[in-house]
Design a binder for these strands. Structure first.
Lengths: 337, 337
DNA sequence: CTGAAAGCGCTAACAG
DNA sequence: CTGTTAGCGCTTTCAG
């Protein structure tokens, strides 16, 4: 059985209150008694029970993080940032995976609440849960931070990338290279795809280059199958479309596009320019290395953690928008057709 | 303020005991009162406080997971497996990152204990903590499972891969294809590389094909730079060595090898066969898709979770060694020279 | 079938 | 400076 504060008190011949004071160092204790208590703690290998402490204090130092999937390295890198910031503030991180399923996402969150987390970070919240105003009820009693959510709800802090601006930069880069027929690859169930599509449509229309047939939906965008799905989808379509460039909503899709071109005998970037989004490590592992928009996942994570702790402590919401920068590598070049 | 069991009891005009019975369904309650309680729960949006429940029941349904780094996708995939198994059993997962630092690893674990986890999974435990018998003291009061630890301590459950056997299979596969000059690519600072090298040397010697010059050390084996390091290292060497095949200690190195061949104008697998190790998702994202030994990280995770829950419930330790199976894809073929 | 009451381990008045 | 004690929200005997 694990030692409790009572065991320590008995061993040191003091009251539990004194032990508590020694442990927390929040009230004066005579040095000599302190020593005695410390020794008892050592000998019994006493570790305070945080559950009991938090039950008593009506607060908690655990925060919950929900991700839609762990298969896209994007999420691992964001979690890395969150964990890094949190551990400095001695918060703990409860992790749950929603498996790209809105029901599951809601279940994860209810579970967090049961476990008395002091706040929750949701990475790429499922649009369905936003529409059904699941979150609107939630924010009454919970501190929430959304990472990369398009719909802005009241009483929630946000950290997101300026994906609108990022998409403009990516598109402009392609346009500057002379590309006119630019395919747009997106997935389902994420706001982030919608933001980019809106920007894509606006930019292309403004240039008089818009063609709805160029918008391709590859389905699930964050699974193991995303790369292959994107590849097959493109191979099906490209025969009928004479595009010279592809702008994809994430790097997984971009890799699929690269593979499709290889399979079809198209040289990159001579015959086809491809630009991805995220800059996950995968993007520079492949050959040719991917030109992509960097989302700086680590910063996304640390900022979210910072906002959440601020929200917990002050009740104030804040929105942070990070800039995405272009990482120019080997999959883009001038339009030669 | 969140509703408590007392609020529900008051609203439904019953005792807290009855509410508890309704919530847990473990004792008979008259249907009519049950209805009344359920209605009160709905109206108050009551969610049981698991901290309080667990404090009372002296048990917990949280488990802690320590990883040395979150940067490597290997770990993300293992965590995915753990999370998947745990969520079925309605356990929650507390995640901490030790940042490749033994002190930090110990701190993470003490923190878990404070938070009353019912067990801990350590992925690739730090050798230093094993030597200083930090863990030996720990196991008295804690259920521990190690993933991929080569040092075996008493009272700990293990799940690991049979990398010796896996290496034999990989090498034999290459030998069966007629390859005689097989390069071996390894990194630093991991037992796992040593196991594979020992096997490599033994197998090659037995065939009379051993050549120490064929052993290549690429340095850090799990960083972002591993792919490129491996590529440059190989490009430097291959000119002088007339190898026809390469066996690498992980997929990152294998991808580097593939890229090196591409850069040098060698066709894969016609001019060079390459076999990796791990089967991280990256291995089938690239083109040509990598032949590799599957470490099945997901299974590593689910098995660890299973063993941990078994250990928690029965106190029994177990060692599970998973077989690594060959995933034959597109980077290997017969020796044509 | 239901209620009263005793804790789980801890903190924080309050009283010495 | 230190001890006593009342809860935090919940489960579970033990009586009715």
């Amino acid at each position: 059985m694990k030692a409790t504060i009572i065991d320590v008190a008995a061993k040191a011949s003091v009251s539990v209150a004194t032990v508590s004071r020694v442990v927390n160092g929040n009230y004066p204790v005579k040095e000599e008694t302190r020593q005695r208590v410390m020794r008892a703690i050592e000998e019994l290998r006493y570790v305070p029970n945080i559950q009991a402490r938090e039950l008593n204090m009506q607060k908690s130092t655990t925060i919950g993080v929900v991700v839609p999937s762990l298969y896209n390295m994007f999420f691992a890198e964001v979690i890395n940032g969150i964990e890094d910031y949190l551990s400095r503030d001695s918060y703990s991180l409860l992790l749950s995976c929603a498996k790209n399923n809105p029901k599951q996402e809601a279940k994860c969150i209810n579970d967090f609440i049961s476990r008395n987390v002091s706040g929750i970070i949701v990475i790429s919240p499922n649009t369905e849960n936003i529409e059904t105003n699941f979150y609107e009820q939630l924010v009454q009693h919970q501190s929430i931070v959304f990472i990369n959510s398009y719909a802005k709800l009241p009483n929630i802090s946000y950290v997101s990338n300026d994906e609108d601006m990022g998409s403009r930069i990516a598109l402009q880069y392609l346009l500057d290279y002379g590309h006119k027929k630019i395919l747009f690859l997106r997935g389902i169930n994420s706001d982030s795809y919608q933001i980019k599509e809106d920007t894509y449509i606006e930019v292309m229309k403004k240039k008089g280059l818009y063609n709805p047939a160029y918008i391709v939906n590859v389905g699930e965008g964050n699974g193991t199958e995303t790369v292959d799905n994107s590849m097959y989808k493109l191979m099906d379509m490209m025969l009928n479309l004479d595009a010279t460039a592809i702008f994809t909503c994430n790097d997984l899709m971009a890799v699929g596009a690269v593979n499709a071109c290889k399979k079809m005998g198209l040289q990159i970037p001579r015959d086809m320019s491809i630009i991805g989004y995220d800059n996950i490590s995968l993007s520079h592992f492949i050959e040719p290395k991917l030109t992509t928009m960097d989302q700086n996942m680590f910063a996304l994570g640390t900022n979210a953690a910072e906002l959440l702790i601020e929200k917990i402590q002050t009740g104030k919401n804040k929105k942070v928008v990070l800039d995405n920068i272009l990482i120019e590598r080997d999959t883009t070049g001038p339009c030669l057709r």
